[in-house]
Design a protein around this nucleic acid. Structure first.
Lengths: 214, 214
DNA sequence: CCCCCATTCAAACGATCGTTTCAATCGTAC
DNA sequence: GTACGATTGAAACGATCGTTTGAATGGGGG
């Protein structure tokens, strides 16, 4: 019979790991589950990625690269305009990226979003640092743009709210916001864009709030 | 020598599990680590709680009971007042509970907060359902009070923002918001109350925002 | 043709997992 | 004191974990 897996073993491993890590988390996903799903051998993981953590690193890196690129592209677009970017524009550019990734690449894209949301809330400090290193380049740019749009807000206040935005988006992307109580998940893209808009509305208002009195 | 563990084995297991689950997550914490920390035998877990998941259930239940009680007490206090509770009062009552638990019982309280934050973002659906069942009684009361304070907002919009509040608080309590980039953690109670106030400010503004256009 | 090197494979490694067994131990009521 | 139910202890269960080994495979360049 023909090869049922046209993609290379390395790519199939990345795809399978991306989906399974997003679904069950890193610790609860065994390498054997990954390799069986990918139609590969257990040893292939250590051959291509060195270790289980190396596989995670590669998965996160691949997913993060596209997201980071999209975020920076949108930010550059806003800056190229003649007006200074508003808070809402900045928030929307940041939040919509997740949804756009989903829509662009279908099921695979949803896994990417869920994976990144999941990795951020992983307990293992090493994994958290991995995620932090990946978002660092984008963070600097957005913090600066947000600070410019909110000159009356102290920098640490802006940073706190930025982290809240990242975190809330991560929860949304990992479906943690929706299915605490099962039974009202719409699963459609209509709800996706609506909820994205809800997030933008909430976060924009949160950013615009005056600094809390100390 | 005297007994170095005055508390009962059952309580010591709960304490140890609470701290370790909060620190490393459920899947990454072994029963042997728990029992060694508690100064107990491995079999004691299955004797007192039936299984590892039974231990988690007991830990979450103990932690959630006190938090739920405090939340409902504060809500009742607001309702007993002559004025209708404002959005800010409701948000503060909800958010401050986490911090108050921490301050009341010291290190132990911090573990409680981290545990609940961690459980909410656990990948395992069974664990998530466990958390969902625990917060359900409080959720109904708060949703109703928030809806009364925000009559112009559609109910599903209120529910979405409520879930965002729960999620954001969970991230804050599990230290996920702070140490994405290590090195700026103050660890003191001063920062705790300040960041609590920041959350209240943000969330209040987020609730007050007009509904997103559809 | 043959060698070579990258890749894949089955198999096994030692370690650790959650769980179970059963004897030892304890306090307590009779 | 003795019997009894509750609790604890050491040890082992089978399963699964991440990782390693060493041989088989297969295509491309000499």
């Amino acid at each position: 019979m023909n090869d049922p897996h046209p993609r290379s073993t390395r790519e199939r491993l990345l795809d399978a790991a991306e989906r399974l890590f997003a679904e069950h988390g890193f610790a609860a996903t065994s390498l054997r589950t990954v390799t069986v799903t990918a139609g590969a051998n257990v040893a292939a993981v250590n051959y291509h990625f060195g270790s289980k953590e190396g596989l995670l690193r590669a998965v996160v890196d691949r997913a993060m690269t596209s997201v980071n690129g999209e975020r920076l592209r949108l930010l550059e677009e806003l800056r190229a305009s003649d007006r200074k970017p508003t808070v809402e524009q900045l928030v929307r550019a940041f939040v919509v990226t997740g949804a756009s990734i989903v829509e662009r690449s279908g099921t695979h894209g949803r896994d990417v979003a869920r994976l990144l949301g999941r990795v951020m809330v992983e307990p293992d400090p090493a994994i958290r640092r991995l995620f932090g290193a990946e978002v660092a380049p984008v963070e600097g740019q957005y913090l600066q743009a947000l600070q410019t749009a909110l000159p009356q807000l102290p920098p640490n206040e802006v940073a706190f709210r930025y982290r809240a935005m990242v975190g809330l988006l991560a929860l949304y992307q990992s479906d943690t916001l929706g299915d605490l109580h099962p039974g009202h998940r719409t699963e459609g893209d209509i709800a996706t864009t609506q909820e994205t808009e809800r997030l933008v509305t909430m976060l924009t208002a949160a950013f615009r709030a005056p600094a809390a009195a100390t």
